[in-house]
Design a binder for these strands. Structure first.
Length: 930
RNA sequence: GGGAGGAUAGGAAAGCUGGCCAACUCCGCCGGACUUAAGAUCCGGUCCUUAGUGGUUCAUGGGUUCGAAUCCCAUUCCUCCCA
């Protein structure tokens, strides 16, 4: 008895035992199916959102396996990059927040946590955790092929890959601005920031105003507004410095002087100048003439050069600052100078906008939004006045910047678009220009062309993402591909640097095919020639361990290219596109090895809010599995949304999923051994079953896990309910139910493999259900007539119930009156008519109909309505051939009487003498309850 | 700012090559049956109205059409990506 109890954790234990090496997959005679997932960066524990990412491909893998394919589903761990280095530092520094996250949320034991001061220990720990939890989820992964991206062997593979990229001319050297901490003396990654992780580096133009023998540089994003400059702003409370920058005298804030050093300038500070001493002095620029310096306390010395040029006609801040001064009776001769015409903002846009929004002073919180609004409006729609060239702002901006750089000493200065940006160490982050920065030249049009050509031949799921890929390829710019900190493979042409994490994980899908075998060879022997041989078939002398290489070559040729890659949609604009670029280069001229398809996922929500480890809004996958069971988690994640849609995890919904599995299990256990003789209703059940098989198969072919579950689970369950209702009281069901159970269990096996294995054993199925044959729909068992008869019966039962509810009397008998043959004729004529409007005329031409007069036209109208109302799968067969309604109801008489507990009479409407019987229509008999 | 997608019952979600659509299905809730009870299961209900009917609905406003949740335009809001 205890064996047949529904006990998920017992099933799980049983299955794990059977599966130990089952999913290790080798080349064989069978057709192959290779799928893979973007590998995880194991810096923390898995949450349920991760669960779906790996369960969807597992369902597909299991499905394809049952279809008889040789399936490869590998997994590895991406440990390269900087984040984990930051984490280890924070743990070493006893950062409370980080420690709490790892100790309390991820539940890392203290003795392990103590070791986390070493970054590699962190990723290795969580890689093992990942494997453990993935296994608990029933993922059918070939773990022999597991690797991490800092394995020496893998590094050799990366070096080989980059050699090809380099030789193809895709790796170039350039300069690059980065966030930089001068205390740590290192670039700062997102995860190393205390504040300002959204800040971006913006390229400003320094407009050089002449001030005696020196320059005063003002940073701007809008150099074209130089024509409208009325003054500069200096902060009277700030101490400025006069410094020799690249040999020429500049007046800038102290902070700016420090920043310029990081941006390729030599800076020697000569003297300090008080801001107040600058006020009311004059400066000049060839494009705007002489203007005064005005005082303004809003000027931030830590923003770019610490001096600001004022364009009151187009910048709300400048406008208000000037207005405030003038209201105090100062500088009243200065007038805003408009220079850009923009529709809908009057003569002086800044003034117009400020007045429209009724902004009182500089402190108004809407100022930033307003500035942004004007900036955007002028950029997209604005045009310079004719005297300044008349060009659109979009074009003029770059032209003016170029002119200033060439003729008027302007230079570029990088600064953040928002502040403050603060490092973990508490120091202000600055922008530094890095030299020796290497780039992947994704901007290369020829390379783009190869990628976009191949993209056309790839299967993309869902199809809507194709435009996003096309756009990404179109827009992609050069990508900085080396870093100075973190874990990773050394960059071959500059050993001081590392290959950046997104750039070292683009062709590893090929590496999976040989990962378990290449380990046997000493990494020192893994020259590029070795990989050239394995992956490209290029022969060369002195290849080591030729036999092993041949075996690897064979694996690669068998598995590659991969059939589908699964990944979340936020990777479209980088990783998923990069990997196509890299494949195109590495497998240059070998189109048959390029990726075949991709499935892109939506995001995960927890109780309606976005999942986020840092905010603590996560539910750990491990907890979910132990609380609800692996099958429950799987079925919930697969059934709540299609893979590419966002899904929402809610515990109460998960709980009801568990009940569903239990219901399924109990039902199967109860009926699997039924042995009665089949009735008509069994033929109906078998007929319906074929459709569920076909639809489930089709859904899975399209990766629609939700649709597939809907068909395979609820579709069959609903049929069974009707089936049991239709069974005579004393009958336990026929031996056909055994077939149904076998099919049903197999259809669900990819989703709930643990329960599947257990039931398979209970049903004495051969081998493991994981490798059992996928059911195939048998067209011969589809019986349209029987389905139609049941449909008629079900609809009639429904009608009787709704009438009974309405009249609220205790019925003594029910009479079902069937429509006469001539109404069937009308029905058929209308259903087959090409023009349903004129068909009534046609009908009335008939002698027999005409003599019935109004009765016939009424019936025709009602039939038309009915035909519109019935689904096509009912109308079509009825149009071909009427069904024998009398026979249907006669044989169901016992059922109906049992259902309603009163005598049921079946009569022909015509000649019954009942008034209500006249409303009888084909497929809709009249019902008289007394 | 540029790009992509979306807005349907209490929640989730199907339908979206125009007529079958008050709208598959699941969850929740309400009522009933079974049960000592709970749970499970089964039946019914869940916009208004009603002898199985009819009406009003699918973010808002407009358009195309004999006819639109479904096509087109505008607006509002949401999500994601890039800047």
């Amino acid at each position: 008895m205890s064996v047949s109890q529904f006990d998920l954790s017992a099933f799980e234990e049983e299955a794990h035992e059977k599966w130990t090496h089952s999913f290790e997959s080798n080349p064989s005679k069978l057709e192959k199916y290779y799928l893979n997932v973007a590998f995880p960066y194991p810096s923390g524990a898995m949450h349920v959102g991760h669960g779906r990412t790996y369960i969807v491909p597992d369902v597909v893998a299991r499905y394809q396996r049952m279809k008889g394919k040789q399936v490869l589903f590998p997994m590895a761990f991406h440990v390269t990059g900087a984040p984990v280095v930051g984490i280890s530092k924070r743990i070493a520094n006893k950062d409370e927040k980080t420690i709490r996250l790892y100790r309390d949320l991820y539940r890392v034991p203290q003795n392990v946590l103590d070791e986390f001061t070493d970054p590699l220990t962190i990723v290795k720990h969580f890689a093992n955790e990942y494997q453990r939890v993935m296994t608990a989820c029933g993922l059918s992964i070939d773990w022999r092929r597991r690797f991490i991206t800092v394995d020496p062997t893998y590094s050799k593979f990366i070096e080989w890959q980059w050699k090809h990229l380099y030789e193809a001319g895709h790796v170039i050297k350039g300069v690059h601005p980065v966030r930089y901490c001068t205390v740590d003396d290192n670039p700062v990654g997102d995860h190393d920031l205390l504040e300002g992780d959204k800040a971006e580096v913006i390229k400003f133009t320094l407009v050089m105003f002449r001030f005696g023998d020196a320059f005063i540089p003002c940073a701007t994003l809008r150099p074209e507004t130089i024509h409208g400059v009325t003054n500069l702003w200096a902060n009277p409370t700030v101490t400025y410095v006069k410094a020799l920058v690249d040999g020429r005298a500049w007046i800038i804030s102290k902070e700016a002087a420090e920043k310029l050093v990081l941006q390729d300038h030599t800076v020697e500070i000569r003297e300090e100048i008080k801001g107040s001493d600058l006020v009311d002095k004059k400066v000049s620029h060839p494009l705007c003439g002489e203007v005064p310096i005005l005082p303004a306390e809003f000027v931030d010395p830590d923003m770019a050069s610490g001096m600001v040029m004022s364009v009151p006609a187009h910048a709300p801040f400048d406008y208000i600052a000037l207005r405030d001064l003038q209201q105090a009776g100062k500088y009243t001769t200065i007038k805003p100078i408009p220079l850009i015409k923009v529709e809908g903002y009057g003569e002086v846009p800044a003034q117009f906008a400020v007045e429209k929004a009724a902004i009182a002073n500089q402190m108004d919180s809407r100022m930033d939004a307003l500035t942004q609004e004007i900036y955007s409006a002028e950029f997209s729609k604005g045009k310079l006045f004719a005297q300044y060239g008349g060009k659109p702002v979009k074009i003029a901006r770059d032209e003016v910047a170029e002119l200033m750089t060439e003729k008027y000493d302007s230079v570029v200065m990088y600064e953040f678009d928002q502040r403050p940006v603060i490092c973990r160490c508490g120091n202000r982050v600055k922008v530094k220009i890095l030299h020796d920065q290497w780039f992947l030249k994704y901007s290369d049009p020829a390379w783009k062309q190869e990628v976009s050509d191949h993209l056309k031949d790839m299967a993309l799921v869902p199809p809507e993402v194709r435009v996003e890929f096309d756009r990404t390829v179109d827009w992609l710019k050069d990508w900085a591909c080396t870093r100075r900190v973190g874990l990773g493979t050394r960059f071959p042409w500059d050993k001081q640097q590392l290959i950046e994490p997104l750039s070292d994980s683009t062709v590893y899908m090929a590496y999976y095919t040989i990962a378990h075998k290449i380990r046997e060879i000493d990494p020192k022997l893994l020259t590029p020639e070795v990989f050239d041989y394995i992956f490209l078939g290029k022969k060369s002398d002195d290849l080591p361990q030729k036999k092993k290489l041949d075996a690897m070559r064979e694996e690669f040729l068998y598995w590659y290219p991969y059939d589908f890659r699964f990944s979340a949609k936020d990777l479209i604009s980088n990783h998923l596109t990069f990997q196509i670029f890299h494949h195109c280069t590495v497998f240059e001229g070998q189109k048959k090895f390029l990726p075949k398809g991709m499935v892109v996922f939506g995001m995960g929500l927890l109780n309606g809010a976005k999942m986020s480890s840092s905010k603590g809004n996560v539910f750990l996958l491990e907890d979910a599995v132990s609380e609800f069971g692996g099958d429950t988690v799987r079925m919930f994640l697969m059934g709540s949304a299609e893979p590419w849609q966002d899904f929402d995890w809610r515990n109460e919904l998960v709980l009801s999923t568990k009940k569903q599995i239990e219901r399924f299990y109990n039902t199967v256990m109860e009926i699997k051994d039924a042995s009665g003789e089949p009735h008509d209703i069994d033929r109906w059940l078998m007929s319906r079953l074929q459709e569920h098989i076909a639809r489930t198969t089709e859904a899975l072919d399209n990766f629609q896990t939700r649709q597939a579950l809907q068909e395979a689970y609820f579709g069959i369950e609903t049929d069974l309910k009707w089936y049991r209702r239709r069974m005579p009281k004393d009958c336990d069901g026929s031996r056909d139910l055994h077939t149904l159970c076998s099919v049903w269990t197999r259809l669900l096996a990819p989703f709930i493999p643990f329960t599947g294995e257990h039931l398979w054993k209970e049903m004495a199925g051969e081998g493991l259900i994981s490798f059992a044959p996928w059911p195939v729909a048998d067209k011969k068992l589809v019986n349209e007539k029987i389905e139609l008869a049941e449909e008629l019966l079900a609809r009639t039962v429904e009608d009787i119930e709704s009438i009974r509810k309405l009249i609220q009397i205790t019925p003594k008998s029910i009479t079902i009156a069937l429509a006469p043959a001539w109404k069937h004729d009308i029905f058929r004529m209308i259903a087959t008519a090409s023009d349903r409007n004129s068909v009534i005329k046609e009908i009335m031409k008939d002698e027999n109909m005409r003599k019935r007069g109004k009765e016939a036209t009424d019936a025709a109208k009602q039939c038309t309505t009915l035909i519109h109302r019935l689904p096509p799968y009912v109308v079509e067969p009825l149009a071909r051939e009427p069904i024998n309604e009398k026979a249907v109801f006669d044989s169901a008489k016992a059922f109906l009487e049992q259902e309603f507990g009163v005598p049921v009479h079946i009569v022909e409407a015509e000649g019954s003498g009942l008034v209500k019987a006249l409303t009888a229509l084909p497929f809709k008999p009249a019902i008289i309850i007394e």
